[in-house]
Nucleic acid binder design. Structure first.
Lengths: 153, 153
DNA sequence: AGCAACCGTAATCATAACGGTTACAATTAA
DNA sequence: TTAATTGTAACCGTTATGATTACGGTTGCT
């Protein structure tokens, strides 16, 4: 799942730098270092989440379907999850309801985990794709000149 | 992993209510609804993390090795992770270092995910076992009397 | 029309993580 | 000594996921 999230973000960052031109799954796969079908699968999730759009046929490919400010890491994470899946779902097994602890532990943990869940979601929602692109540019710049101070693009 | 975390917390909550008496893996397994060996495996992780202690032989079992205030959900989470594992590790695959995006995406995401990681850790660290026990007690109380208001014990 | 470039998806295979279970040696109380 | 317990290894079955192949449908170009 971690991998899916990271690769999905990689894909979106790549598309963001394509200036609205559709990019084929093969080209993206080259950058990500995986198979084109894997990219198309993830692209399918991103498409269903409304983050990207794809064009069939020759010259087709994927492109962002929202402005960079309107795609956050939280959106990406949700796109990777099942429709109803909950990142912090208390995956209870089969606690013994005949036991005091077993009977209420799941609900208790659900409540106790709420703040952690919200904190993380808020932090992810605070990072739009523009920020990802900015980070990438910063690193590429400092890499270019090899100088300690960077010129801000 | 989610399951392991939840079950580990269940185990600790159970031990917390045992008043310092060692509890056998069989008894805990009953409450959790799993096999004693599964409990012993998790107990092993918790022991290596310094959260519990175990006694061998007849009448043996597990007991907490810290005060309830000194065990937080973050401690439990860490106990479930490999020594160097990072919950937010950027599980990069094989990004193409010949590509601008591929070359820096991992490090960029690492930085961008930092705040989310810290936010979640802080939220988890804010929940000690005492809080878990309190939640459990609250639910058991309201369950007892079936009354809307609860008496705070 | 025909071809080639693309996507969407199903199917298959390999791998890794994990829970469930059995087995067994080591420890300890009675 | 015996019975209760832990610690661990080993094995099986399930699930998630990446890699790959295959194939049908779409679309641009000539």
């Amino acid at each position: 799942m971690n991998t899916r999230f990271v690769v999905a973000t990689h894909i979106l960052a790549y598309l963001a730098r394509a200036n609205g031109q559709p990019v084929s799954s093969e080209v993206v796969a080259k950058s990500v270092g995986t198979h084109p079908v894997v990219v198309r699968r993830l692209l399918g999730d991103l498409r269903r989440a409304g983050l990207v759009r794809t064009q069939l046929g020759t010259g087709g490919g994927a492109l962002l379907d929202r402005s960079l400010e309107n795609i956050t890491l939280l959106d990406v994470l949700h796109a990777m999850l099942e429709p109803e899946a909950d990142l912090f779902a208390v995956n209870n097994a089969n606690p013994n309801t005949g036991c005091d602890v077993g009977r209420v532990i799941s609900d208790s943990l659900d409540d106790l985990l709420g703040p952690a869940k919200k904190a993380m979601q808020a932090a992810l929602a605070a990072v739009p794709l523009t920020e990802v692109i900015r980070q990438i540019r910063l690193r590429l710049n400092s890499e270019d000149c090899g100088c300690p101070a960077d010129n801000g693009s």
